[in-house]
Design a protein around this nucleic acid. Structure first.
Lengths: 206, 206
DNA sequence: TTTATAATGAACATCGTGTTGAATAATGTC
DNA sequence: GACATTATTCAACACGATGTTCATTATAAA
């Protein structure tokens, strides 16, 4: 636990936080100056330096916080478990939990993953899924691969990530449950079969 | 055609270009100053302003150029055509062409799509695939969708994009032909079946 | 060679930075 | 409530990058 109870400190931090969030809606993170944040927070510029090294440092702390929250949820993922839900009605709970967590930080994530966002942060989140997947892949590995494992992981991680960003971009109109279902479906049958454009191979098509 | 033949102008532009590329390998684009570029190019700082408004403007011109080159290749894509190559040995030529074009700008793209890269640019490239896909989707659309079309597009575009970035990240060890094959395969059978982890549904499994 | 124009070097005011020290204000504790 | 602690304020500072200028020099195209 970090020890900070002084109301003044907490209040100033909150003001700076709100100010930065407000500014992030308007301009690039890199162009936001300490003066900008301090002015909008109605706080002395010198006070800012009592809390953070610079704007980048402040933003990094916010990124770290959100990342850790999401990471905690991803830890609960189990690909073998997820596969059991392929043809069930209800979605995989751990997957739903991730979307719920993301929804909780939607405002911040929408900015950081949007056009003015941070590619390092985006890749960090994508990596989170990749690493998790690599570990599990060793267990369910088939006798021989028909393609490089790292490309498979890149494909899956990016695809999932794309669904998340699209969900955020479009105002999160689908529920976390619906998102979880879509993911499982696409993972298993692929985009063409899942959408109905193409028949399941080996059944009717070809 | 832009009319510029003066050797001095061309030489200075080349020097500035090389200097910026060199600097991009070392530090964030946003932290690169006009002074930095001019110094490294061994050009007077004032001269820089004779060519570009600022560093961001210069970078934007480079982004526009590469984007247009890739865009021209994507124009040749035809999803219906691509599907004909699903079970063939040889890859879809238009798809190969895209990877070749990307390879030509690998150094720049590796930076712009890497951790220090530009999320707006990355999304612009991703959008390029999406828009192309949306148009074609109307034609091959199935009687009823089993999921929102926009999520399908987001999935496919991001997945493809992920393969591209992974290709760049890992030093492009696979040939454009191999990349094109992997994409077609993953698109059709999905990641699990394609990798061999899961049997083709409706054939043996379940 | 002549003419046009690109590049140079120096100077300038402006702005944000990061830091300092003294004064003031709010807080937690006894 | 009084007190010691600590957060915040305010003014000032040197520093570095900016964007612009103007006269001068160098190089290109004709």
């Amino acid at each position: 636990m970090t020890e900070k109870l002084d109301r003044r400190k907490a209040r100033t931090r909150q003001l700076l936080h709100d100010a930065l969030m407000s500014l992030l809606q308007e301009k690039n993170a890199e162009t936001i100056t300490v003066t900008d944040v301090a002015d909008r927070a109605d706080v002395n510029r010198g006070t800012f330096y009592l809390h953070y090294k610079d704007v980048a440092d402040m933003l990094q702390q916010m990124k770290d916080y959100v990342f850790e929250r999401v990471q905690a949820r991803v830890e609960h993922l189990d690909i073998s478990e997820a596969m059991k839900y392929i043809d069930r009605k209800e979605p995989y709970p751990a997957s739903v939990g991730i979307f719920e967590e993301i929804g909780r930080h939607a405002e911040f994530l929408r900015i950081m993953l949007g056009p003015r966002g941070d590619l390092a942060f985006a890749r960090q989140l994508r990596e989170l899924m990749s690493s998790r997947m690599y570990a599990k892949l060793q267990i369910v590995a088939p006798p021989h691969w028909s393609m490089p494992a790292d490309y498979l992981v890149a494909f899956v991680a990016s695809a999932n990530f794309g669904l998340v960003t699209h969900w955020l971009d479009t105002g999160m109109h689908l529920t976390p449950e619906e998102m979880a279902k879509i993911i499982v479906r696409l993972m298993n049958y692929g985009p063409l079969v899942s959408s109905g454009i193409r028949q399941a191979p080996g059944l009717l098509g070809e």
